[in-house]
Amino acid sequence: MESFFDWVHDNHAIIYIVILSIFLGIEVIGRVPSVLHTPLMSGANAIHGVVIIGAIIVMGRVDPDNYIALIIGFLAVILGTLNVVGGFMVTDRMLEMFKKKK
């Protein structure tokens, strides 16, 4: 039990971020009209592309002689970038259609 409290104490900042972000995430899109469900999903899809930052960090720390790790990291960077770039562009294309005429 004590180790659990210690863990909470050591990581309290992160735990706060997680809990507040959960509520924020729910609150922030709470009243979205159904018309925007698809673009919103697509936009959120692009945002979780932040995982690319993890891929960059992995890649940047790999020992240049470790080819397997290099290739896996390289793949991760490519896939993460696809998620980010593709995600934002597809969302933009969808939303472009929504602009009001006249």
């Binding site: 971020i17 997680v18 995430g25």
Partner: peptide, 21 residues
């Protein structure tokens, strides 16, 4: 894993908002 706040907020936000959506 990397104690990286932007990944944390981005990921959890999408996790929560995505579940609600």
């Amino acid at each position: 894993l990397y104690n990286n706040q932007v990944m944390l907020t981005g990921g959890i936000l999408v996790g929560a908002a995505g579940t609600l959506l």
